[in-house]
Nucleic acid binder design. Structure first.
Lengths: 147, 147
DNA sequence: GCTTGCCCTAGAGTATTGTCTAGGGCTTAT
DNA sequence: ATAAGCCCTAGACAATACTCTAGGGCAAGC
């Protein structure tokens, strides 16, 4: 049993355009064509495509996914290379997560200010300070007067 | 005390190009110019720029950051709007994190296969299955013969 | 006064990742 | 045999976020 590109698009929530784009980028060398030149996806193809979307969803670039797929196509001798690729990507994901969480903490800090009962006063004081700093440095004040 | 664009670039690890680009995109309406038309950054400006980079680092688009900055410039009356913006962004970040962790789990699953002592056999069996599936469906086999 | 080293703007160019259009072919049902 | 509904490719277009170039101004030291 095989799947047309349309069926695959529906299953994966990728657009037909995206699937063809991925193929053009060399991500789908394992997808065969039938006698009419149409792509026919097998179940094993869907497995590989699933791996591709996992890599994409975790921020791997298409060029790097292609390297992984190239290794897959080359056969079992590239298992160490694939392992290295995925391990490095794993670390990159975790590092990115850490960075995002650190930034989120700062956003939460701002949110806490906005949520505090004295938010109005704190924000107003900040604004006054920023205005005063401009004046003190002989700069035009970019903050509009409050209505 | 104020900072030149070069000093700010060094402090923030953003390029001068990026800072000017952000200004062009309306992200830095609070940065004043001196008599020569040069940007002069105050400490309060750096604080706001820091917030901007937090939002950017967590995946907020420039257009959305601009909305937040617009609210900041409009004064304390927009505190509820800012709070809503940041809360929504906070949820978006957490949802994205969840998605990434789910995908990472699948990558880890693949890694475990590669790391297993019988990786060679498992991968070879998968490949044989994929080849057989192509043949069974009357499709050309895209997998090269192993050398 | 002239060089050096910053600063400016406008706008062109680049990288990435799609998305869509034009032109055309296969397959199935009528 | 023709219309409908898929499929194909090549290539144009688009959104995002920079990055750089050209051309020019200001400021400080020789």
């Amino acid at each position: 049993m095989t799947y047309t590109i349309k069926a695959v698009a529906e299953k994966t929530h990728l657009s037909i355009y995206t699937l063809r784009f991925y193929d053009k980028q060399g991500l789908l060398p394992f997808v065969s064509r039938n006698h009419a030149g149409y792509r026919e996806f097998t179940d094993a193809d869907l497995q590989l495509l699933h791996t591709i979307t996992c890599l994409k969803n975790t921020g791997m670039k298409i060029a790097d996914i292609r390297h992984y797929i190239d290794a897959v196509m080359a056969g079992p001798s590239t298992i160490p290379a694939r392992q290295a690729l995925l391990s490095a990507h794993r670390e990159a994901i975790l590092a990115a997560q850490q960075k995002i969480m650190a930034n989120l903490k700062e956003i939460d800090f701002k949110l806490n200010i906005y949520n505090a009962p004295n938010a109005q006063q704190v924000i107003t004081a900040e604004r006054r300070y920023a205005k005063a700093e401009k004046i003190a440095n002989g700069l035009p004040d970019p903050y509009p007067a409050l209505t």
